[in-house]
Amino acid sequence: MAHDSYYHAPDLAKFPDVGKDAPELWNKFLGWYGAVFAEGALSEREKALIALAVAHSVQCPYCIDAYTTACLEKGSNLEQMTEAVHVAAAIRGGASLVHGVQMRNAAGKVKM
C-alpha cells in the first residue's frame, strides 16, 4: 500500500518481504547480519552504538528507530548514544571539510 511519505514506520515490520523473490540472497544476508552483531572482539553493546552512528550517517529512519531501542536494550545510556551520533556527524562534517584540500589544490593550479 502506498503512503503519503516514502518512509512509513510500520513498514519496518515488512522488511522480510524483501526476501520473497530472492530467498537465498535474503537468507545469506540474515546469516551474515546475525553474525556481524553477535558478541565478538566487540561487545553487542558496542556494535549497537556503531550501528546507531552509521544509521545517522546513512540517514535511515528505520535503522535509527531500531538501533535506538537496541542501544537501550544493550544497556547504553543517552549520553553514550548522543556521543555516538556526534561521532557520525563529525565524520560527515570532516569528510566535507577535508575536500577543501582538493578545492585548494584545484584553485592553486589555476590561480595566479
Binding site: E39, S43, E44, R45, T69, L72, E73, K74, G75
Partner: peptide, 17 residues
C-alpha cells in the same frame, strides 16, 4: 530494570558494566 518501555540488556554484559 529498564528506565522505559524496552527490554533489559543481557544480564552478563550489564553486570560487567
Amino acid at each position: 530494570n529498564p528506565a522505559g518501555a524496552y527490554l533489559p540488556a543481557s544480564q552478563k554484559s550489564l553486570e560487567r558494566d
